[in-house]
Write a protein that binds this DNA or RNA. Structure first.
Lengths: 225, 225
DNA sequence: CGGCTTATTGACGTTGCTCAAACATGGTGG
DNA sequence: CCACCATGTTTGAGCAACGTCAATAAGCCG
C-alpha cells in the first residue's frame, strides 16, 4: 500500500489503519475541525482548497490514489480537504502514526520526499497561475489529470508518464475554474475552443477524450496557440 | 545557526560548513548546473525562479536569512535560485550533509518541517496568484517582505509577526512583477496608488516606508479597496 | 416526463497588458 | 563636485483577454 516503505514498517502500519468510504463533497480536513487523522487515498480524488472570507476560492492541490492527505507535525494548515469524487481512504490516527514514524526513519523519509514532491507540484502550479493564458491553463489541467487519474495504487509502474486518452473529470466546471484561477465561463469557452480545434472531445459533463495528446501538451506548454 | 537542531548535530555540522559571499544576480542553483551544495542564508535574499523557453518567468519562492536553499534527496528541481541582493551563505556539501542527516533524526525532522513550511507558503502564494487583484498582490508582497526582511538569524524571537515599518525592497520592479504574475507597469501603477492613498511612501528605488500597516494588511487581504 | 442543478453561450464591461515616450536614479569619469 | 550616461522606473493611451451579467440549453434524478 505504502509502496516505498520498508516491509517491517508496513507490517506495523497495517494494524493501526482503518478503511473509510467518503461521499462526494465531504470535508476530510479543515481549519477548525480536522479529523485528526492522516490518510492514504485508495481511490478517488481530494481537492485542497484555500478560501477567503469574501468567498473567493483557490484549489491549491489535488491528491489522487496512493497520495497522502494531511501532514504529520503540521501546524495549522488553513486548508480545506474535500472529496471531489467518491473516495476510499486508508486512515491512521495522527498520534499512532507519529509514534510509528519516530521508530522508522524510512517512513519519515518517505513522507519528506512526498512533501518535496508536493512542493515541486505546487511551484509548477504557481507558474501556471501567474503566467499562463486561460487556454494554456485548461490544457495543462487536462494533461495533468489525464496523466494521474488512472495510476493505480501499485506505484509508479506501467502507466507512469503516459496519459489516459479517455477519462472522467474528477472536477466540476466550478472546481476546474477554482483550480485554474479562472471563471467557469472562461473554462467553458476554452473547452469549446479545444473541441473545435479537434484536440479533445467530450461526452456528458465529465467524460473527456484526448484526440491529439501531443497537440494538447504543446498547447499546455505555450509553444503554440 | 541552525537553531532548531540539537546541540550535538550542530557541533557536527560546523566542521563541514564553509562560508561564501555571493554578489547580486549570481545563480546559486540551476536545473543543469547545481552547485551541488546546500546552504543556509546568513544574510540577503534568494529568489527561486521557474522559467519557460519563451522567456516567461515566475518567482515561486523567496528565501531570507536563516532559510535553507536546496533540498536534500531532491530529484531535478527545474528551479533557478538566484541572489537578489548581496548574499552571505553557509554552505554544506550535499553528500556530507546527507550522511549527517541519516545519523541525526532531529536534523531530518527539521528539514521536513521546513519543507512543510515552504509548502504552506507556496499554497498561500497560489491563492494570491490565482485570486487576488493587482492591488492586493502588491500590498501582500509588501506585507510579506516587511514581515520577513529584518528577522535575524537568531530565530523566531522578538520580531516575529511584527512588520518592519521601513525597509529596502530586496527585489527590482521586474522581480516584483515576476513574483506577482504582473507586468512591471502594473506594479508601478499600484505602488503609486498605494502612495496616493497614504498607505506607504517611497524614497529612491528601493526604500519603502509603511505609513499605515493596518490599512496595508487590510488591502492585502482584500477586505477593502 | 418534470423539475433542478450545472454548463453553455452571448453581449458587454473592466482589469491589467502592450507599446511608446518621458523621467529618475545612481554610478562613472572628467 | 558636477555633468553625463546607462539602466531601471514611471506615466500615458489604446487594446485584448478575461470577467460579469443574463438568458438558454443540456444533464441528471426521481
Amino acid at each position: 500500500m505504502c509502496s516505498e516503505v520498508s516491509e517491517t514498517a508496513a507490517r506495523e502500519l497495517a494494524p493501526i489503519a482503518h478503511h473509510r468510504r467518503i461521499p462526494v463533497g465531504q470535508v476530510i480536513h479543515s481549519e477548525h475541525q480536522g479529523l485528526g487523522s492522516l490518510a492514504i487515498i485508495v481511490s478517488g480524488v481530494v481537492k485542497l482548497v484555500k478560501a477567503q472570507r469574501d468567498g473567493r476560492l483557490q484549489i491549491v492541490g489535488l491528491q489522487y490514489a496512493a497520495d497522502f492527505v494531511g501532514h504529520p507535525y503540521a501546524a495549522k494548515s488553513s486548508l480545506i480537504a474535500e472529496a471531489t469524487t467518491h473516495l476510499e481512504l486508508c486512515c491512521f490516527s495522527r498520534s499512532a502514526f507519529e509514534t510509528l514514524m519516530r521508530n522508522h526513519p524510512t517512513l519519515e523519509q518517505a513522507l519528506y520526499r512526498r512533501a518535496l514532491n508536493d512542493l515541486e507540484t505546487a511551484r509548477e502550479w504557481m507558474f501556471l497561475l501567474g503566467r499562463k493564458t486561460a487556454r494554456e491553463k485548461v490544457a495543462s489541467l487536462l494533461v495533468s489529470i489525464a496523466t494521474r487519474i488512472n495510476r493505480p495504487l501499485g506505484g509508479v509502474g506501467a502507466t507512469a508518464g503516459k496519459m489516459a486518452l479517455q477519462f472522467d473529470l474528477p472536477l466540476s466546471r466550478n472546481e476546474i475554474a477554482d483550480a485554474l484561477g479562472l471563471t467557469i465561463e472562461t473554462v467553458s469557452r476554452e473547452m469549446r475552443s479545444l473541441k473545435l480545434a479537434g484536440v479533445v472531445s467530450t461526452a456528458g459533463r465529465r467524460s473527456v477524450t484526448v484526440l491529439n495528446p501531443d497537440l494538447l501538451r504543446t498547447i499546455a506548454e505555450g509553444d503554440l496557440d
